[in-house]
Amino acid sequence: MRSRILIAALCAVLGLALWLWALGGADEVAVWAAEGQRAAQESMASALRALRSGTPGALAGLLGLCFAYGLFHAAGPGHGKILIGGYGMGTSVPMTRLALLALASSLAQAASAVMLVGVGALVLGWTRQQMQGAAEVWLAPASYAAIGLIGLWICVRGARRLWRSLAGVKILARRDGDGAHSHDDDDACCGHSHGPTPEQAAAVHSLRDAVLLIGAIALRPCTGALFLLIITWRMGLVWQGVLGAFAIGLGTASVTLLVAVASVVLRDGTLAQMSGATTTRAMGLIEALAGALIAVLALQLLLRAL
């Protein structure tokens, strides 16, 4: 039953991918997202004026518009979706954990915008142009470069996994022919482990991966959050602007979560058709290809930003 559900979900994801990249759907989504962002920004200006004049319900209306802006913003091209989607497709990470990573990375982008405006405005005395310039000229390329390096690292890790699985089959075949003993027997005799268990290694990798992924995405602050924070700081609505920035982050996370779910479905649906050593080799190949895709797309974003 689970296999059938995965296959059906895989077909749905592949159909969506076909519409986006082969039938021009991505261009339609980009136009829709740009129009939505523009409309949300115009409405946010009115909501800020209402908030400043003390209109009841103005804050709730502003936060709703900020969430909508984040949703439209995330629907367009973005480095966060590339990294989260590629990582989910290429790594054996549970859907719940990847969803939390997607949420944390979006909120971290909002937090980095708050930090940039706080330091830039209060400590360095920067103008709006200087803060936006720092985000676009320095932080955006640094974020794309970091994502590209993570992609290369994932690619190398996948290639190593694929190589070990292929080499392991040859070694086991040779041992079976020679009558060699199992290392599991050694562990039982000497009473201690010669290395971390697979569960311990996975825990270390997941924590390290989480820190790297969130850091690389958060390195580039959300432009919409920056714009809102600068305006609210000038209007004397500082904490309202901070709440709005995190509302934008939640809106962004709603789309990134969908990408995370789709990537896990794509991975599990593909692997559901395999078994045994074939699954291990396929997982290494998928991880290497996903890492290479992340690196290539990040390089394209970096070249555009330079």
Score class of each variant (00 low, 15 high):
residue 64 G to T: 06
residue 64 G to N: 03
residue 64 G to K: 02
residue 64 G to F: 08
residue 66 C to G: 07
residue 67 F to R: 07
residue 67 F to T: 03
residue 67 F to H: 05
residue 67 F to I: 00
residue 67 F to K: 01
residue 67 F to Q: 01
residue 67 F to L: 07
residue 68 A to L: 10
residue 68 A to H: 01
residue 68 A to M: 02
residue 68 A to S: 02
residue 68 A to R: 00
residue 69 Y to R: 03
residue 69 Y to K: 00
residue 69 Y to A: 01
residue 70 G to N: 11
residue 70 G to P: 11
residue 71 L to G: 04
residue 71 L to P: 00
residue 71 L to I: 04
residue 71 L to K: 08
residue 71 L to Y: 15
residue 72 F to I: 00
residue 72 F to C: 02
residue 72 F to H: 06
residue 72 F to Q: 03
residue 72 F to S: 02
residue 72 F to D: 08
residue 73 H to I: 05
residue 73 H to K: 01
residue 73 H to E: 14
residue 73 H to Y: 12
residue 74 A to K: 01
residue 74 A to R: 00
residue 75 A to R: 00
residue 75 A to M: 14
residue 75 A to L: 15
residue 76 G to K: 02
residue 76 G to F: 05
residue 76 G to D: 14
residue 76 G to M: 01
residue 76 G to E: 11
residue 77 P to L: 12
residue 77 P to C: 06
residue 77 P to T: 05
residue 77 P to D: 13
residue 77 P to H: 01
residue 78 G to W: 12
residue 78 G to V: 06
residue 78 G to R: 00
residue 78 G to N: 06
residue 78 G to P: 04
residue 78 G to I: 08
residue 79 H to I: 12
residue 79 H to D: 10
residue 79 H to F: 14
residue 79 H to G: 07
residue 79 H to L: 10
residue 80 G to R: 12
residue 80 G to I: 10
residue 80 G to F: 14
residue 80 G to C: 12
residue 81 K to R: 14
residue 81 K to S: 15
residue 81 K to D: 15
residue 81 K to C: 13
residue 81 K to M: 13
residue 82 I to L: 14
residue 82 I to M: 08
residue 82 I to P: 05
residue 82 I to Q: 09
residue 83 L to P: 09
residue 84 I to R: 08
residue 85 G to F: 02
residue 85 G to Q: 04
residue 86 G to I: 03
residue 86 G to C: 08
residue 87 Y to K: 00
residue 87 Y to S: 12
residue 88 G to V: 03
residue 88 G to N: 05
residue 88 G to Y: 08
residue 88 G to Q: 06
residue 89 M to D: 05
residue 89 M to R: 12
residue 90 G to R: 03
residue 90 G to V: 01
residue 90 G to W: 05
residue 91 T to Y: 08
residue 91 T to K: 07
residue 91 T to F: 09
residue 91 T to L: 04
residue 92 S to L: 06
residue 92 S to P: 07
residue 92 S to Q: 12
residue 92 S to V: 02
residue 93 V to W: 14
residue 93 V to Q: 13
residue 93 V to K: 03
residue 93 V to I: 15
residue 94 P to F: 09
residue 94 P to Q: 02
residue 94 P to E: 15
residue 95 M to H: 00
residue 95 M to P: 07
residue 95 M to Y: 04
residue 95 M to G: 01
residue 95 M to D: 09
residue 96 T to H: 09
residue 96 T to R: 11
residue 96 T to A: 11
residue 96 T to P: 04
residue 97 R to Q: 15
residue 97 R to N: 10
residue 98 L to K: 08
residue 98 L to M: 10
residue 98 L to S: 02
residue 99 A to C: 14
residue 99 A to N: 09
residue 99 A to K: 06
residue 100 L to R: 04
residue 102 A to E: 07
residue 102 A to H: 08
residue 102 A to W: 11
residue 102 A to V: 05
residue 103 L to Q: 10
residue 103 L to Y: 13
residue 103 L to H: 13
residue 103 L to T: 11
